[in-house]
Simulated assay, not measured.
Amino acid sequence: MTTVYDFTVKDTKGEDVSLEKYKGKVLLIVNTATKCGFTPQYDGLEDLYKKYKDQGFEILDFPCNQFANQAPEDISEINGICEMKFGTSFDRFDKIDVNGDNADPLYVYLKEEKPGKTGKAIKWNFTKFLVDKNGQVVGRYGSTKKPENIAKDIEKLLAE
């Protein structure tokens, strides 16, 4: 059986990171952009992270430039924007594609496990996938779902 722990992604320095490093934690995996109408959700994501990180919660941030060129910067510029403007402290990874022929294998898996209401494709920036402590994808939330409105689902998984 496949879980998110079976995938390896690139960190912001281009180094391989096995997601097995997050085994036993509740994860929120998000495709992000710095110039999107939903970019202020970084504040809500950081609030969630601060509130639950000591209970075994992690946010995995995957910048993506596939939606209206809203993440045009290189990864070091994205890091600077996220840290300086939004004060993010959760893990960020290298820019990826989430749809199409070059979609990152992790996102191919996430979309297979939890298709959206209109199909598998990611519709926009800040689509969120919730993963339980066993590495299973248990929730998918569209861009309009604010991070604070996912808190109860996170709390339920942390309590299991």
Rank of each mutant, 00 (worst) to 15 (best):
T2E: 13
F7L: 11
T8M: 04
V9L: 11
T12L: 09
T12K: 13
K13W: 01
D16A: 10
L19T: 01
E20P: 02
K21N: 04
K23N: 05
K25N: 14
L27T: 12
L28D: 09
V30K: 08
N31C: 05
T34N: 12
C36Y: 06
C36K: 07
G37N: 07
T39M: 08
D43W: 00
L45G: 10
L48E: 09
Y49E: 05
G56C: 01
G56T: 06
D61E: 11
F62L: 08
P63Q: 04
Q66W: 12
Q66C: 10
F67K: 05
A68E: 12
N69C: 01
Q70T: 02
E73N: 04
E73Q: 14
D74N: 15
I75A: 02
I75N: 08
I75T: 13
I78P: 01
I78N: 00
I78A: 06
G80E: 15
M84Q: 11
K85D: 15
G87S: 05
T88C: 13
D91L: 02
D91Q: 14
R92D: 09
F93C: 06
D97I: 05
V98E: 12
V98F: 13
V98L: 11
N99S: 09
P105G: 05
P105Q: 10
Y107V: 02
E112M: 13
E113I: 06
G116E: 10
A121S: 14
W124M: 11
N125A: 00
F126S: 13
V131A: 09
K133C: 03
K133A: 04
K133V: 08
G135A: 09
V137A: 07
G139V: 12
S143W: 01
N149M: 06
I150F: 01
K152T: 12
K156A: 15
